[in-house]
């Protein structure tokens, strides 16, 4: 089973450090295989480091457009959102991926598009990694879901389980995350869209889950890699 992006607008949100940027970049690549005009918006106005904008050159070479807040990746730590983002959200011929900043603080920027997104064909993915310290159990993870929905003025429509320990990930870790996803689904009614593993993951996992597996390429690299 493959993860399909059926909607025109795909939004990725979640607790910071859960892998939203890497998943957004991979989603853009995936959407590009089916659609011509694809735009990735790096909408992170909270964290100036390790962002999807870092993969700009690679994405542009694949024909994917990338835009980001005005001063991203410079020393000016000022969140300025350009008008081209709203324009893209209204353009019915464009497939748009929004990589949103972490937590409710990062999601708040979506509230500004209250007259652009809810009326449109969109999915909002909540990405979580159960090995992160603040999204370990049901109640604290649901707290993030609620806070992000409130701040963004949008409803989360799908879950992505991105539970991993970088190079030390085992299939059991992924399944442990999927278990939490199931609990969240039961409690909130939000369906699980996919679990993620990195390309080259040497264990069989697809046969052990009942939902799509999203295989990720590593696009955002450390300076010493």
């Amino acid at each position: 089973m493959e993860l399909r992006f059926d909607k025109r607008i795909n939004i990725f949100c979640g607790h910071y450090g859960s892998g939203k940027s890497e998943i957004s970049v991979n989603s853009a690549v995936s959407v590009k295989s089916a659609y011509d005009d694809v735009l990735l918006v790096d909408l992170d106005i909270v964290n100036p480091f390790f962002r999807s904008l870092d993969a700009k050159n690679k994405l542009e070479s694949l024909g994917i457009s990338v835009i980001a807040p005005e001063f991203a990746n410079t020393n000016v730590d000022v969140p300025v959102i350009g008008p081209e983002i709203a324009a893209a959200l209204r353009n019915q011929n464009r497939r748009v991926i929004l990589d949103v900043g972490g937590d409710e603080d990062g999601a708040r920027v979506l509230g500004r598009y209250f007259f652009d997104i809810p009326q449109q064909d969109y999915d909002m993915f909540f990405v979580f990694n159960r090995s992160r310290p603040m999204t370990r159990d049901l109640s604290e993870t649901i707290e993030y879901i609620n806070e992000i929905q409130l701040a963004s003025r949008l409803k989360i429509t799908r879950l992505i389980n991105n539970t991993h320990y970088l190079g030390e990930t085992t299939p059991e870790d992924v399944l442990y995350g999927a278990e939490l996803a199931r609990e969240i689904s039961e409690k909130t009614g939000i369906p699980l869209a996919a679990s993620c593993v990195m390309k080259g993951f040497k264990h069989d996992i697809a046969s052990r889950i009942d939902h799509p597996l999203f295989v990720l390429d590593n696009h955002i690299l450390m300076p010493f890699k």
Binding site: G17, N129, P133, H164, Y165
Partner: peptide
């Protein structure tokens, strides 16, 4: 416990 964390955290 084993966790995935940022340096600052």
């Amino acid at each position: 416990e084993k966790l995935l964390m940022k340096g600052n955290e």
